[in-house]
Design a protein around this nucleic acid. Structure first.
Length: 492
DNA sequence: ATCGGCTCGCGCAA
DNA sequence: TGCGCGAAGCCGAT
C-alpha cells in the first residue's frame, strides 16, 4: 500500500524521563497506557513488546483512570471505561496481563505505579504534550527506580522532530510535505501484540489486593465517584469497537463528499473521529493507512514539487486530500504547538504580536452583548445559531467543526475582554467536549484569537484585525436549518 | 446557492 | 530575489 512498518520503534519517538537503569532482573516490562489507549498501531506498546522480548520477560499493561483531574465527569469517565472494557475483552486469556485500574477516591491510586515499577525491568509510557500528562509522567519517573521511557505515538510526524513551533499551518504543511515521505516508511506495527512474549505473568496478588483492578468496566458505577455528574455520558460510545465502526462508516459513506459536505452543519459530513483520536482509541496512523489503502496509493503519486498547498500533494481524491489536511496538518500543528509550549500552551501572552496588539487596542470597545460563563453555558444568548452549537456541545460532547469556530468567535465578541473569552472557551470546551483537553483544544481556541492567522481588514470593534465570523454570514453560506431544528431550545 | 478574485507579507526555494 | 501561498474573511457575478 505504499507505506511500511518500522522494524523497530524509531529512536526519534523515544524520550527517557529519568536516569534510572533498566533492570535485567526485573520480573516484567510495564506499559503504562495514559494517552494512546489502544492495542493496535501504537508505538509505545510496540516498544514495550520489543523491550519485553529482548529481556525475555512478560509484558503487563496498566491502563489507569484517575479521579482527581480537572473536568473529570461521567462523560469523560464513561468514554474511557468503554475503551477499558474493550481491552479487557481483547486481552482475556492472552499472554499479556491487563491491569485496568479505576481510582475509587482521590489519591487511592497513589503508589500503584511505584509498586509495579519496583518490580519491573523498565516502564514504557505515552509521550503526550498536553493537559496533566506531562506533569504526571515526570513525577512518576522521578519516583521510579527503573527507567521510564515516554514514546510518541501521536502522529505521522514525530512531534519532536520539528525543532520549532510553526507560526502558520502553511509553513508547517510545507515542512510536512518535505518530511512525511520518510515518516510513511516508519509506521507502527498494526498488531504489536502478535509477538509479545508468551510467558507466565508474575504473581501480583499483593499489589492487586491493595489496588483492586477494575472487574467489569461496563458496569463501572460512576454515581459513587466524586466526579462531575452534571456532565452526562455522551450519546457516542467510546472504545475500540466503536472507533473502528465509526472510521469504516466515515470512509465508506462520507469521505468522497468530505470536501463539500464537511462545512454544512445539516450534512453531517464530518468524520466524528476526534473523540477516538483524543483518547487514543484510534491512531492517526491507522486512519491514514486506511485511506491510502482504499485509494491504492503508492509513493509515486506524491507531487514532485513541495509548495505547502492544501490539496494536491498526496495525489489522492479531493475528499481524501481534504481530510488528510485535517488529520495530519491541522491535528499535528496542535502537537507542534504544545510540545514547544509545555507550560504556557493556553496563555494569552503566547498569541502572535499583531493579534495581541490589535485585541488589546479594542479591549475597551463597547460590546453590543456581554455574557458571562453561566450564560454561555446555558445557551442563553440572543443568537439561535450560537445557542444551538452550545446545546450540541452540552448534549453530544462535540460541536460541528465549522460552527465550533463561529462558537469561539462569538465568545470573543460577547465577553468583557479577550482574556475572559479565552478562559470561557477553555472552560466550556474542556468541560463538555469529548475531544477537549487536547493539543487541538489549544490550537483551535488560539486560532479564534488570531494564532496561525493573519490580520484581516476591515478592522472592527472588539476583533480589531482578527478574523471575524458571524451567524448571519454562516447561515447565508451554509445549510443550517436542520441543525437549528435539531438543537433548538425545545429539543432536549 | 456557488464561484472566483481580492490582498500582501512571509519565508523558503532558487 | 521572486514566487506561491492563504481555516472558515468580503463582495459581486452568475
Amino acid at each position: 500500500m505504499g507505506i511500511s512498518e518500522a522494524t523497530s520503534t524509531p529512536a526519534g519517538r523515544l524520550r527517557p524521563l529519568n536516569d534510572a537503569p533498566v533492570r535485567a532482573d526485573g520480573e516484567f516490562v510495564l506499559y503504562w497506557m495514559v494517552a494512546q489507549r489502544r492495542l493496535h498501531a501504537n508505538f509505545a506498546l510496540q516498544y514495550a513488546v520489543e523491550q519485553a522480548t529482548a529481556a525475555g520477560r512478560p509484558l503487563i499493561i496498566l491502563e489507569a483512570l484517575r479521579i482527581g483531574y480537572p473536568w473529570a465527569s461521567d462523560r469523560l469517565h464513561r468514554f474511557v471505561l468503554d475503551g477499558m472494557a474493550d481491552h479487557a475483552t481483547a486481552l482475556r486469556g492472552g499472554p499479556v496481563r491487563y491491569y485496568p485500574y479505576l481510582e475509587p477516591t482521590e489519591g487511592a491510586g497513589a503508589g500503584l505505579l511505584e509498586a509495579l515499577a519496583a518490580r519491573a525491568c523498565e516502564v514504557v509510557t505515552d509521550d503526550y504534550p498536553a493537559f496533566f500528562v506531562p506533569r504526571m509522567s515526570a513525577a512518576a519517573a522521578g519516583r521510579s527506580p527503573v527507567r521510564v521511557t515516554a514514546v510518541d505515538g501521536n502522529g505521522l510526524r514525530p512531534m519532536r522532530a520539528e525543532p520549532k513551533p510553526y507560526p502558520t499551518a502553511y509553513l508547517f504543511r510545507r515542512a510536512l510535505q518535505h518530511a512525511l515521505p520518510a515518516d510513511l516508511e516508519a509506521f507502527p506495527r498494526a498488531d504489536p501484540l502478535a509477538d509479545a512474549p508468551r510467558l507466565a505473568p508474575p504473581d501480583l496478588s499483593e499489589i492487586v489486593r491493595r489496588w483492586p483492578p477494575l472487574r467489569d468496566a461496563d458496569a463501572g458505577d460512576l454515581g459513587a465517584l466524586a466526579i462531575n455528574h452534571a456532565v452526562a455520558p455522551a450519546p457516542l460510545r467510546g472504545g475500540r469497537a466503536a472507533a473502528i465502526a465509526r472510521m469504516c462508516e466515515f470512509l465508506d459513506t462520507r469521505l468522497d463528499e468530505y470536501g463539500q459536505a464537511r462545512n454544512h452543519p445539516d450534512d453531517d459530513g464530518a468524520s466524528g473521529l476526534s473523540p477516538y483520536l483524543h483518547f487514543g482509541h484510534l491512531g492517526a496512523h491507522e486512519v491514514a493507512a486506511a485511506i491510502l489503502q482504499r485509494e491504492d496509493w503508492t509513493p509515486d503519486r506524491l507531487a514532485t514539487r513541495v509548495t505547502g498547498a492544501k490539496a494536491g500533494w498526496w495525489g489522492l481524491s479531493a475528499g481524501a486530500e481534504s481530510f488528510l489536511d485535517e488529520l495530519v496538518t491541522w491535528r499535528e500543528l496542535g502537537f507542534n504547538w504544545c510540545v514547544h509550549h509545555p507550560d504556557d500552551a493556553d496563555a494569552y501572552d503566547t498569541l502572535p504580536e499583531w493579534a495581541r496588539r490589535t485585541l488589546d487596542r479594542h479591549t475597551a470597545d463597547p460590546r453590543e452583548y456581554v455574557y458571562d460563563l453561566d450564560e454561555f453555558e446555558a445557551a442563553a444568548t440572543h443568537d439561535p445559531l450560537w445557542n444551538a452549537a452550545q446545546r450540541q456541545l452540552v448534549r453530544e460532547g462535540r460541536i460541528h467543526n465549522y460552527l465550533r469556530m463561529l462558537w469561539g468567535k462569538k465568545i470573543l465578541e460577547w465577553s468583557p475582554s479577550p482574556r475572559d473569552a479565552l478562559a470561557t472557551m477553555l472552560e466550556l470546551n474542556n468541560r463538555y467536549a469529548l475531544d477537549g483537553r487536547d493539543p487541538n483544544s489549544s490550537s483551535g481556541i488560539g486560532w479564534v484569537l488570531g494564532r496561525y492567522d493573519r490580520p484581516w481588514a476591515p478592522e472592527r470593534p472588539v476583533y480589531g484585525a482578527v478574523r471575524y465570523m458571524s451567524s448571519e454570514n454562516t447561515a447565508r453560506k451554509l445549510r443550517v436549518r436542520g441543525y437549528l431544528d435539531r438543537f433548538g431550545p425545545d429539543t432536549a
